[in-house]
């Protein structure tokens, strides 16, 4: 790990980064994936608070994954958020990891995290060995010829299905709110740019609208072992059903794209439809429209479809099987 200064306040710029929970940052620094000279400690920042109203849920950026997951209002009004968090990482990591940090977790692509390999995200222009290499875990949606890495977090997938927004304060002090859907950037030719954050920007809050759909939201995660593993595919759904008709639907996929992947077409197809298996299977297929396999990850197309279908079934007819895979 490169030596650095830890400061409570500092000038943002090249070579400076922020630390909140530190669970991902320290891994990246130990592996020499990043080597900042200055690390600004957010521990003293007043970015806590979990506030739930009939309109929205607000999560302070420094709230821990554990606290948000366990919060009774979150569990009642936005269950997919709690589920996604509880299916993430380990209890220890969840006691450390924060809301803002989880949004910014870097990809688990093995080529990105081992500096012995080339990587366009780490060293723009150096190449992407994953495209012709070990890509069983890689993206089927939203990837580019320069990068096929996936976003690894679960929590923002749930947020995406519920139309959440991210409040950001800039270095100069101005604050803006960005829909999560606009927060992430697809790799294109610049896989090193992952979000719209500018140097010095800090995520301060996450805002999630309240809705009947959010109340019935479900997060379904499929992985290689029963716990403490990243998603091979996951689905977050938030649907409102009245008289067996779907009034509203939010659907997002995780583990299959460079960002939490909103399945807008599947959402639209569901609105007005009868809440039955045929509709849910159709939505599953639409959710992966445009998917492209890199080689070893072809199974993810069917897996993601089935995750969506199963999550919708679960939301419509709860059996408490969520995530117990």
């Amino acid at each position: 790990m490169h030596a650095f200064q830890l400061i409570a306040a500092g000038t943002p710029g090249a070579g400076t980064t922020f630390i909140a929970g530190g669970t991902d940052l320290l891994q990246l620094m130990k592996n020499n994936v990043i080597a900042p000279d200055q690390v600004v400690d957010l521990a003293g920042a007043h970015l806590r608070g979990i506030t739930a109203t009939s309109i929205e849920l607000r999560l302070g950026a420094l709230e821990t994954m554990a606290d948000v997951a366990a919060h009774p209002e979150v569990r009642r009004g936005w269950p997919a958020i709690s589920q996604a968090l509880l299916l993430s990482a380990s209890p220890q990591i969840r006691n450390m990891g924060t809301m803002g940090g989880n949004l910014l977790q870097r990809t688990r692509c093995v080529y990105f995290r081992d500096t012995a390999f080339a990587c366009n995200k780490r060293h723009p222009g150096s190449g992407c060995p994953a495209i012709a290499g070990e890509n069983r875990e890689h993206a089927i949606l939203g990837a580019s010829d320069s990068c096929i890495a996936t976003h690894p977090s679960d929590f923002p997938v749930a947020l995406m299905a519920m139309g959440a927004g991210v409040a950001i304060t800039a270095a100069g002090g101005g604050t803006r709110v960005v829909p999560l859907a606009d927060f992430y950037r697809l790799p294109g030719d610049t896989p090193e740019i992952e979000t719209i954050l500018q140097p010095g920007d800090v995520i301060t809050q996450i805002v999630v609208p309240a809705s009947e759909a959010a109340k019935r939201s479900v997060y379904m995660k499929v992985r290689d072992r029963s716990s403490f593993a990243y998603a091979l595919a996951s689905a977050a759904v938030a649907i409102e059903i009245r008289d067996n008709r779907i009034l509203h639907a939010g659907i997002a996929l995780g583990g299959v794209a460079p960002m939490p992947w909103r399945a807008a077409k599947a959402e639209q197809a569901l609105i007005g439809a009868t809440a039955d298996a045929a509709a849910f299977e159709h939505a599953g297929r639409l959710a992966t429209e445009g998917a492209r396999a890199a080689g070893m990850n072809a199974y993810k197309i069917a897996l993601a479809q089935r995750a969506v279908t199963r999550a919708l079934m679960e939301a419509a007819h709860p059996t408490a099987e969520t995530g117990v895979l």
Binding site: L6, I7, A9, L47, A167, G200, T204
Partner: peptide
Amino acid sequence: LPDVPQNALAQTPPSH
């Protein structure tokens, strides 16, 4: 919105 980042971004002499 929370007021904090001001704190995080103010210029102070870096420590070692």
